[in-house]
Amino acid sequence: MTSLPSHTEKKLGLVIDLDICVGCHACVTACKGWNTENYGVPLADEDAYGANPVGSFLNRVHSYEVKPEEGAAQLVHFPKSCLHCDDAPCVTVCPTGASYKRVEDGIVLVNEGDCIGCGLCAWACPYGAREMDPTEQVMKKCTLCVDRIYNENLPEEDREPACVRTCPTGARHFGDLSDPESAVSQLVAERGGMDLMPEQGTAPVNKYLPPRPKDAPTDVLAPLLDITGEEPKGFLGWLDKTLERLG
């Protein structure tokens, strides 16, 4: 049934640090690589070397310019993938039961064998987290690398989503957001982690850490350029005053 579970035992998800992300798109590449070779049908790349390349991705990195009222504009890189919402509208609209939210860990998945490719779940998602694969014509979305995180054939350090494992700056964190003691929950509490589009009422599990406030701009050369320095004393002080008096 595509009804949402009333409660999930865990809330596995990502915490993405917008202060640290440098917009290198390594997570996009790692995600595409892992998810093309593992869970479900491969992610398409049509006309990859031609004039109109198009394909499906489960993770995309936007870049925004943010202009404060005073001071310089900031560039913020913004990775976006499925937020594994508690109140996921994509799940309940599905007519076939292909979309579901797991009770054991809260991951939202698509059973591709049941997907008729109607696209209604992608319409219901406010975040653009679901893309219809142009070749296979089934809905693709982030699986939170469900085939990595429980995979005992992988070394323990690799049992996290490919995007988190690959991030060179440590801007992505993975963990259980239902446990207030978990590292990710602590990070969210400490840094004021936020929901995207709260007005949509989707209760996303993934959280975003806002960029830290910038220091006030300082002119580092100013003290060196201050040629008068302190008021002169002694002989130089007498000379200074005398010369001033001469006009």
């Binding site: 109109n52 198009v54 991705f57 990195v61 913020v76 913004f78 319409w123 806002p210």
Partner: peptide, 30 residues
């Protein structure tokens, strides 16, 4: 755009660079 990105309390948000150079399903469909 401010509520979508959560960056509104820093200032006005403008899309600087799209995540992909071509089009995609989201753009053609929605």
């Amino acid at each position: 755009m401010e509520s979508a990105t959560g960056l509104g309390n820093i200032g006005d948000v403008r899309a600087f660079e799209p995540p992909h150079t071509g089009t995609n399903y989201l753009l053609t469909e929605m």
